[in-house]
Design a protein around this nucleic acid. Sequence first.
DNA 1: CTTCAAGGCCAA
DNA 2: TTGGCCTTGAAG
Length: 459
Amino acid sequence: MTMDQQTNLMSLNMSPFDLSPGPEGSGSGGGPSGASQQYVPQGAAYQCPPEQQSFGYANLDASYLFPTGPGGEAGAYLPAAGAVCDQTDTKDVIEELCPVCGDKVSGYHYGLLTCESCKGFFKRTVQNKKVYTCVAERACHIDKTQRKRCPFCRFQKCLDVGMKLEAVRADRMRGGRNKFGPMYKRDRARKLQMMRQRQIAVQTLRGSLGDGGLVLGFGSPYAAVPVKQEIQIPQVSSLTSSPESSPGPALLGTQPQPPQPPPPPAHDKWEAHSPHSPDAFAFDAPTNAAATPSSTAEPTSTETLRVSPMIREFVQTIDDREWQNSLFGLLQSQTYNQCEVDLFELMCKVLDQNLFSQVDWARNTVFFKYLKVDDQMKLLQHSWSDMLVLDHLHQRMHNGLPDETTLHNGQKFDLLCLGLLGVPALADHFNELQNKLAELKFDVPDYICVKFLLLLNPG
DNA sequence: CTTCAAGGCCAA
DNA sequence: TTGGCCTTGAAG
């Protein structure tokens, strides 16, 4: 990326940050559980005019941004009565891309969100017990334009991503619901919660950057891309859209939580885990770095001896595996079935997600979580960028994160530039800083302490 | 009553 | 055969 691009990035102030109310800005009462449409208008243009790209942030108040309802099912995530809820909340949840062909999702079908065409294809195949053959290597690329070419590979992919044979009824009975209903509901609630947390992150950004400039977020340069596409919820543990995927971090942000038990140690190698191609993201991390696995979440016994219990508690708030999964989950989901993606856009999305995670982390950490929402916002607005850079530095130093990785589609993704928040010119400073920190034996407890200092520093 | 994920229909 | 739209009907 060039500095020009960076300038563009900084100067773009896109409409999602408009304060114009959303289509249901007056609060129709159509909460997330009630306003969904089964069919999106077929003629709907992918690219919305700017004035329609608003997410209706004007509607977000503190209670909406920081829901504190009782835990449990979907209701726990819904705004309290009287809270205004933008319609996009519900609709966006299903406006992802079909995991089979990348077409527009029309709803939950046979276990996960898919498009209408793959739904029909799956149904016909199972109902009619069709047997296909592949004339090639049984590895045909399936996307919206080529999905008709090889039904064998298409059906295989349907199964791979998690479409469920048992959801096709043997008796062909129409209507009603099946056993997957509650699963869909949970998945929807989880995605809503993810979206909400992303909105918090965006709100934070908006506050920190003011109206004049915007670096990342939904209003980033990829606003040229359909806005709904942004709502591709990263699947952390499983890269399919199956609601049966691991519960994900969705619940983490709903309310303050007690310290989590230390997560398992991070991987020795930087790689994403995909059911389709487990090694697709294997990083060529330097072996010396990889040989010192990140034990960030769990200090070694030596460390345990010298760090205070409080710092140990701090260390437990970070989860490098989650950071890694989150990063590569997004890279995977955004490049799956794509011949070539806009790397700049992709970087914006990753940073967007990192910011979201940052807010999520902060809101669940000791001290911070007891602050007033206003104060939380101010602190986050003040510190988010420093913390993102620090996190990246930590990943490089303690987990062997390389400067570059090869994406699923073969493109190279510049992780160093990512760590510099899109300003590659600072690479030298970054490396210099890392060297100095290494000289100082900057370790994981040091990292987490600095992170807390950054977060809690009102100045 | 509304919702929405099943199956069905039929033009392309 | 495909895929967009329609009908159905149990769940809530």
